[in-house]
């Protein structure tokens, strides 16, 4: 299955992916309108230490601990990816606690969890972080 992978070797730590993610999931088609003056809550986060940078987002584990621990049945693995149904989410944030990658986080208001759904849930229809990565550090590809 195609997944988003990050090549640490090429990640520049520019954090552009975070903004492209927040924009893609904002529901607004103009980036300035979507993000100007706002604090962003992206599904991808760049972790930095010194010269090492690494963008982290959901691995879409086939047997995901978040899915197993969800008390409301909001998280599911549909054979392609781990999806979240925010209408079912009760905001217990257990998934946030159990995700070993820190890839699930509370949404803007903090009442429900949010996570990467490979941009299938927004207007871009292809992972926007991948599309805009300056250095092909974030790739969307099939790997064994």
């Amino acid at each position: 299955m195609k997944r988003i992978y990050v090549n640490e070797k090429w990640c520049l730590g520019c954090h552009l992916c975070e903004y492209e993610c927040a924009f893609a999931n904002s529901g607004v088609t103009d980036m300035v309108k979507a993000l100007k003056g706002k604090k962003i809550h992206p599904n991808i986060r760049v972790e930095d230490r010194g010269d090492v940078h690494f963008a982290v987002n959901c691995r879409h584990c086939t047997d995901a601990i978040c899915v197993r621990s969800c008390i409301a049945g909001a998280l599911s693995f549909d054979g392609e990816m781990v999806r979240i149904d925010q209408n079912k989410c009760v905001g217990c944030l257990t998934c946030v606690l159990v995700c070993p990658y820190g890839a699930i986080l509370p949404d803007d208001e903090g009442h429900v969890a949010q996570k990467c759904m490979l941009c299938t849930n927004n207007f871009t229809q292809e992972p926007n972080c991948v599309r805009h990565c300056l250095n092909n550090a974030i790739v969307y590809e099939e790997r064994d």
């Binding site: 954090h15 975070e18 993000l35 100007k36």
Partner: peptide, 11 residues
């Protein structure tokens, strides 16, 4: 009016 202060330029 267009700058969203993402700081990519700075980095």
């Amino acid at each position: 009016d267009r700058c969203i202060a993402c700081r990519v330029c700075e980095r």
